[in-house]
Computed example of a mutant assay.
Amino acid sequence: MSIATRIRRVGLPRLIVHISVLFVVLLWLLPTLGILVSSLRDKDQLVVSGWWTAFSSSSQTQALRLADPATQKQEGDRFIIAGNVFENGAGGKVSAFGVRVQDPEAFPAGEAADLGDGESLVINEDGTYQYSKNASFEGSRAKRVYLAVATPPIFTLDNYRTVLASEGIGQSFVNSLTVAIPATVIPILIAAFAAYALSWMKFTGRSLIIAMVVGLIVVPLQMSLIPLLQLYNWIGNVFGVPSKTYAGIWLAHTAFGLPLAIYLLRNYIAGLPKEIIESARVDGASDFEIFVKIVLPLSFPALASFSIFQFLWTWNDLLVAMVFLGTQKDELVLTGALNALLGSRGGNWEILTASAFVTIVVPLCVFFALQRYLVRGLLTGSVKGG
């Protein structure tokens, strides 16, 4: 089947959509894959080559000196110094060598190089070498050579051990979970009750409350953060409550997340079939029973879609965590700890990539676990209303 026939069968607009989606997926996937591969690589290989070369041998230039001239042996009319360039425990495969820093790959491995003045040097792929001369080496210094060494790919979990243990990321990981999980569950619980009330319970001022909720969605976090902090500190001073607590940051995230949560859930719940609610009331069910036994199970897509957003916001938050939780080492969340590492370990890419992947692995798991409900919950909540 020709390409033109395939395009006609699929349809050009649909084909463009498929290509665009594939491009977006690759654009998102490649950096994530790069972080994961880099976090598992040996730090020496990570410095000299990109992550896309991780599964092939990498070439590095090394400078070293051959064995001491005192180890020379005479064979016939020539004096020979022999050994192995990997005697210090290093490994790899020599691809080329040279005797000048300007040309470290002047001679292929295994080929005898004529260095002039009766000197000859050959270095094999396995690192064995033979340096010979038609006169004694006595009184001369050890010969300096340069090697192009191809080393096999090395993957290790040491980067993660370092990050989770000595760099304090482990404690920050626990802190982030302690912040994100309650800060996701609390606003969902409150918003679900409020959304049901605004959808199916008739009371004075309901329309005004809905309008206020919609208006609060557009209030920037940065604008309301200082007044909220002042109110929080005032309450703490009046009642003698410590200012830097998890309860404070839970309440802050709940306040910032409630307007959108109520709006999304209210639109979704208001779109549920009216007959189901009325039948339950005819059967004598109370509002609480209707909410728990009927509305909540049917609203799971909307609850899941908002929980993804709320969890990602709270997990990736830095500003609110620094304001309400603090900046001490044992108080930092993952984003704060990663920000501190950028200042102290900015040149250690193996540490930064491992820390970054630890930061994104939990949101990835949450997203992939709930993503099938995301589009259904958002689309249904955006087109239905009561």
Results as ranks from 00 to 15, higher is better:
D114F: 03
D158K: 13
Q62N: 09
A148Q: 13
L64W: 04
N159V: 10
L64S: 00
K143T: 11
N84S: 12
A96R: 08
E119L: 15
F173H: 04
A82S: 14
V99G: 10
E119G: 10
E125C: 11
I169K: 00
V99C: 07
T61E: 06
N84E: 02
V101T: 11
G98P: 04
Y160G: 12
P152Y: 14
S166Y: 08
T162N: 14
Q60P: 00
L66H: 02
Y131W: 12
T162M: 09
V163D: 01
G168Q: 04
L64R: 06
V101S: 15
S120Q: 15
F86Q: 07
G116M: 12
V145D: 14
T128L: 05
A54Y: 02
R100F: 14
D158W: 03
E111R: 07
N159P: 01
V149R: 07
F155P: 12
F107K: 13
E87M: 11
R100T: 15
S140T: 14
A113N: 13
E125Y: 11
K93L: 14
A112Y: 01
D103K: 13
G118N: 08
P152A: 15
L147V: 12
P104A: 07
G91L: 02
A90I: 07
K133M: 10
E138I: 06
E167Q: 14
L164M: 13
P153V: 05
K133R: 15
Y146R: 03
K133N: 08
G170V: 11
D158L: 03
R141P: 01
I169A: 08
G168L: 06
E111I: 04
E75S: 10
T128M: 03
T162A: 13
E111H: 04
A90D: 11
A109Q: 04
S136Q: 07
D68A: 02
F55Q: 01
V101F: 03
A70D: 09
G170M: 08
V145W: 10
G91F: 07
Q62F: 04
V94A: 09
T151S: 14
P104S: 04
S120F: 15
Y146W: 13
D158N: 14
Q171D: 14
D126P: 06
P153C: 05
E105H: 13
F173N: 10
R78C: 00
S57V: 00
E87N: 09
A96I: 04
G170L: 08
Q102E: 15
P69V: 08
Q60H: 07
K93S: 14
R144A: 10
A96Y: 05
Y131P: 08
G127T: 08
V122T: 15
I80N: 04
S136K: 00
T156L: 07
F107M: 12
Q74L: 06
A150R: 13
R144M: 08
I154F: 12
G98V: 13
L147D: 11
L147W: 03
